[in-house]
Simulated assay, not measured.
Amino acid sequence: MSDHFNRVTHINPDDPHDVALWALVLDVTPASVYAAVAEVGTDAEAVQAHLMGKSSSAGSGG
Results as ranks from 00 to 15, higher is better:
56 S>F: 06
48 Q>H: 11
52 M>C: 06
60 S>Q: 11
61 G>I: 06
22 W>M: 05
61 G>S: 09
23 A>V: 01
23 A>K: 03
31 A>W: 07
36 A>P: 08
37 V>C: 01
19 V>D: 10
38 A>N: 05
55 S>A: 15
40 V>Q: 04
51 L>M: 07
24 L>P: 11
38 A>Y: 01
27 D>A: 15
56 S>K: 12
33 V>M: 07
57 S>A: 07
45 E>S: 13
20 A>E: 13
53 G>D: 02
59 G>I: 04
37 V>D: 00
43 D>S: 08
26 L>C: 12
51 L>Q: 11
35 A>F: 00
31 A>Q: 12
23 A>P: 01
23 A>R: 02
22 W>R: 01
30 P>H: 00
60 S>W: 07
52 M>W: 09
32 S>M: 10
36 A>C: 09
52 M>Q: 13
26 L>H: 11
38 A>R: 04
55 S>E: 11
47 V>G: 04
26 L>M: 15
59 G>W: 00
39 E>V: 03
19 V>G: 13
24 L>Y: 14
29 T>D: 07
60 S>C: 06
21 L>S: 15
23 A>G: 05
32 S>N: 09
59 G>Q: 03
32 S>V: 11
33 V>K: 02
59 G>E: 04
46 A>S: 08
31 A>L: 10
62 G>H: 06
19 V>A: 09
22 W>E: 01
44 A>Y: 00
55 S>W: 04
50 H>Q: 08
48 Q>K: 15
58 A>M: 11
27 D>W: 05
45 E>D: 14
49 A>D: 15
53 G>T: 05
40 V>I: 05
19 V>T: 07
52 M>A: 03
48 Q>N: 14
20 A>W: 06
25 V>R: 07
40 V>L: 05
26 L>W: 13
35 A>M: 03
57 S>F: 08
53 G>N: 04
43 D>K: 12
34 Y>P: 14
28 V>A: 15
27 D>E: 12
28 V>D: 10
35 A>C: 02
30 P>I: 02
43 D>W: 09
60 S>H: 09
60 S>T: 09
49 A>T: 10
19 V>F: 01
60 S>N: 06
54 K>S: 09
38 A>E: 04
50 H>V: 02
56 S>D: 09
36 A>T: 08
57 S>R: 12
21 L>V: 10
44 A>F: 02
62 G>F: 01
58 A>C: 13
55 S>V: 14
34 Y>D: 11
60 S>F: 04
58 A>Y: 05
19 V>C: 08
30 P>V: 01
34 Y>K: 10
54 K>F: 04
19 V>Y: 02
21 L>K: 14
55 S>M: 14
47 V>S: 02
56 S>T: 10
28 V>E: 11
27 D>C: 14
53 G>V: 06
40 V>S: 03
43 D>N: 15
33 V>Q: 08
25 V>A: 11
29 T>V: 13
45 E>T: 10
45 E>G: 13
47 V>Y: 03
28 V>Y: 07
39 E>I: 01
39 E>W: 00
44 A>V: 00
51 L>S: 08
24 L>W: 12
26 L>S: 12
22 W>D: 00
34 Y>L: 05
58 A>G: 14
54 K>M: 08
60 S>K: 10
44 A>D: 02
23 A>Y: 00
25 V>I: 12
52 M>Y: 09
52 M>H: 13
41 G>T: 03
57 S>V: 04
29 T>Q: 06
51 L>F: 01
51 L>T: 09
